[in-house]
Structure formats: C-alpha cells, structure tokens
Amino acid sequence: MKIFPFGIYLGLFLIFSACKTSKDLGKLPTKTSNGNYQAVIEIPAGTNKKIEYHKTQKKFLVDQRDGKDRIINFLPYPGNYGFIPSTFSDPRKGGDGDAVDVLVLGESQKTGSIIEIIPIAVLKLIDENEFDYKVIAIPAQIKDQIINVENYKTFSSNYPEVIKILESWFTYYDKSQVLEIKGWGDEADAILEIEKWISKP
C-alpha cells in the first residue's frame, strides 16, 4: 500500500518533466535526411475542429472565436491540414505571418503527427488582400497514399474532380472570410513556395 502513492508521484514527475523538455515542433527540420519535406499535422482529415499548434505553449489547441471553440460549420477537412516546420511567411514580404500551410491528401493522421510528404501542387488564394497559398501534398509513404499521382500533371488529369472539390471547400468553408482563388501552381511552384519561406537559423 505504501508503494502506490509513490508510484503516482513518480508518474506525475515524469509527465511534467516530459512537458518541460518537449521540443518546438515548429523548429523541426523542413526536410528529412533523405530529402523529403516534413509536415506537422494539426487537423486530421475528416474532422471539423480548427486546431492550431501554439509554439509558445508547445501544444495543440482548438482555435477560439468569440470565446468559443472554432468549429468548421461546413464539410470536414478534405485532407490532413498542417504546416511545414521551420518556415515563416513574412508579412513584410507579402506573407500571412504563419508557417507555410499544407493539405496532405491521404489516410487520416492524428493531431501532432509528423509525416514525410511530396508536394504536388499549390492552391493560390487571396485572403483579405493577402496571399494565402496552400501547398497540396501526398504522403511519401506509399501505404498512406490514397490517390495515384506523381505530380501536378497527373493530379490534374487523373483527379480534376478533386481539384474542384478543394477549390469549393477553401472558398466556402468559412463564411466569415472572403477568399479569392487566383489559380494553381505545379509541384515546382509548391517547392518554390516552401523554399521561399524557410526560416534561417
């Protein structure tokens, strides 16, 4: 009976120790050692809570609007939504002040998952007169892929319906915003968008 309380204290100590030493996911390398880009997943595919990673608190929280959890009152996210680590789209250079956004088309991933991705396109949006580009990617792991694409050419030719769905979803998912679609870029444009905003150490 004397061991049980000690076990609780030890467990709590280890938990709090782990929280204090948790690394900032926003500062993970943009690429892995094998050359693939990385994505940190905030919002799993098929869910509708607007979850964001807070780098100061080093945890994922549901975004708040008017003191309430921000719920997407529309169809759920059509892919795994997150960001490319160690990127920052500088507002002084036309960015939106956040890390580069990415939508990964694949099996649903848990919040906090870190996955290797292959950029295949970029959806170019204007949000309140600011550029708001969304990199579209697929998982690098074949087992997590759900569509058979290699680049923007095969994406647009094999899945034109998906492109229409993504355009409609990003246009209408948030009634409080007015988004304007400026078009699409291919995989080279997507990579250029990522590389443009990589944070310097």
Results as ranks from 00 to 15, higher is better:
138 I>K: 00
47 T>D: 03
182 K>M: 15
66 D>Q: 14
194 I>V: 07
86 S>M: 08
35 G>D: 05
92 R>D: 15
34 N>W: 14
119 P>H: 05
131 F>K: 13
15 I>W: 02
162 V>D: 05
111 T>F: 05
174 D>K: 15
103 L>T: 03
53 Y>T: 00
87 T>P: 05
24 D>V: 06
15 I>V: 10
49 K>A: 08
33 S>F: 04
61 L>D: 06
81 Y>M: 11
145 Q>L: 05
193 E>Y: 06
28 L>M: 05
121 A>N: 03
161 E>Q: 14
176 S>K: 11
75 L>Y: 12
116 E>M: 08
108 S>Q: 03
114 I>P: 01
34 N>A: 14
89 S>L: 12
16 F>M: 11
200 K>Y: 11
44 P>V: 05
143 K>P: 09
55 K>V: 15
82 G>E: 02
163 I>E: 04
45 A>L: 09
193 E>V: 03
37 Y>W: 04
32 T>G: 08
91 P>K: 12
139 P>L: 11
104 V>Y: 00
156 S>V: 07
154 T>Q: 10
93 K>P: 13
81 Y>P: 05
89 S>Q: 07
80 N>M: 07
177 Q>T: 12
36 N>C: 10
158 N>C: 12
120 I>G: 00
184 W>G: 02
86 S>N: 09
193 E>N: 12
8 I>Q: 10
137 A>S: 06
151 N>G: 04
37 Y>C: 01
42 E>I: 06
158 N>L: 12
36 N>Y: 04
83 F>C: 07
156 S>R: 12
113 S>V: 05
78 P>W: 07
131 F>P: 07
135 V>L: 01
144 D>Q: 09
101 D>M: 05
18 A>N: 11
194 I>R: 01
82 G>V: 05
167 E>S: 12
95 G>V: 02
67 G>D: 11
92 R>H: 15
118 I>F: 01
191 I>M: 07
121 A>T: 03
43 I>Q: 01
46 G>N: 10
45 A>K: 13
62 V>I: 14
92 R>G: 15
31 K>P: 00
176 S>L: 15
155 F>I: 11
122 V>C: 04
96 D>Q: 02
42 E>S: 04
124 K>V: 11
91 P>F: 10
198 I>G: 00
72 I>D: 10
48 N>D: 13
159 Y>K: 06
81 Y>T: 04
118 I>H: 05
92 R>V: 15
123 L>C: 02
36 N>D: 10
178 V>T: 15
1 M>Q: 14
200 K>I: 15
117 I>R: 01
186 D>N: 14
27 K>H: 09
46 G>D: 02
61 L>S: 07
150 E>I: 15
188 A>I: 15
57 Q>W: 14
113 S>W: 02
66 D>G: 13
26 G>W: 01
32 T>F: 03
111 T>L: 04
135 V>W: 00
64 Q>V: 13
